[in-house]
């Protein structure tokens, strides 16, 4: 429907805003949140573009898993990033501009939407479309290709993803050891305390408080002390 183009434009504008905010913000926690929002918006946009299966993957991986993984990685690092000097931003900017221009140049060679003579539709695509119904007996051709025609390929991919997940879990140390193994922090706002799971003994006397003092300083990105006090009083 042509009228949904308004929604597409709205989503793309939101994506641009979120992307610029991710680049400009210094608080890593806010950046993790914004990455979750970016993935939510892009998945909604994929639905609006009628790519429901891509949106499904984006929602599961981008919004769910990667947010948690980014948070776990933040346990090992600083809570705020330091600003990059202007001289070191020129090179990446040039690379990005060049890659973007190259993509725009490549758009002209792409086949039209739904072109019956495009490479994707001319060779094995026809066979899949013709024979899936009688060979596999399921209506979705994409699922038939992934899970049946290329079943071994998909199985190998699953093994690779599993190995990668194991490596990530070992690196992050999700069992609470992250606080002890932290690589040398270069900031002052990192708490030296290990996580309760790693301590193996009762919490100290200030445990019933909503959060420890370093955590409270992390809460307020602009380091507004009175605001933090008010928040604490209101919540208890």
């Amino acid at each position: 429907m042509a009228s949904t183009i308004l929604l597409d434009i709205g989503f793309m504008a939101m994506l641009v805003v979120v992307a610029f905010a991710i680049v400009r913000l210094r608080s890593l926690f806010a950046i993790v949140m914004l990455q979750g929002v970016y993935s939510l918006v892009s998945a909604a946009w994929f639905v609006s573009l009628d790519a429901v299966d891509v949106a499904f993957t984006e929602a599961a991986v981008g919004a769910g898993v990667s947010t948690v993984l980014m948070l776990a990685a933040m346990l090992l690092a600083d809570r705020e990033s330091r600003p990059v000097p202007l001289g070191r931003q020129i090179g990446p900017l040039l690379i990005v501009v060049f890659a973007g221009l190259a993509m725009f140049y490549a758009v002209g060679d792409m086949p039209a939407y739904g072109d019956a003579h495009s490479p994707a539709n001319s060779y094995v695509g026809h066979d899949y479309l013709d024979r899936t119904a009688e060979e596999i007996h399921i209506p979705n051709v994409v699922t038939a290709v992934l899970a049946s025609y290329r079943g071994y390929d998909t199985f190998g991919e699953a093994v690779v993803v599993f190995a990668a997940g194991l490596g990530v879990l070992l690196l992050l140390g999700l069992n609470g050891n992250a606080g002890r193994w932290r690589a040398k922090p270069n900031g002052v706002r990192v708490s030296k305390q290990a996580a309760p799971a790693a301590r193996k003994r009762p919490l100290p006397a200030d445990a019933p408080q909503p959060m420890s003092a370093p955590a409270a300083t992390i809460m307020t990105t602009r380091a507004k002390k009175p605001a933090a006090k008010k928040k604490k009083g209101g919540s208890s």
Partner: peptide, 25 residues
């Protein structure tokens, strides 16, 4: 539906991160 579940999981993870500084608690 998937979004609703994912949203919940992400919020729980963030709050656990705030409170315990670890996710396996």
């Amino acid at each position: 539906l998937l979004y609703a579940l994912m949203n919940f999981i992400a919020t729980i993870a963030v709050l656990k991160f705030f409170r315990y500084r670890a996710l396996d608690v």
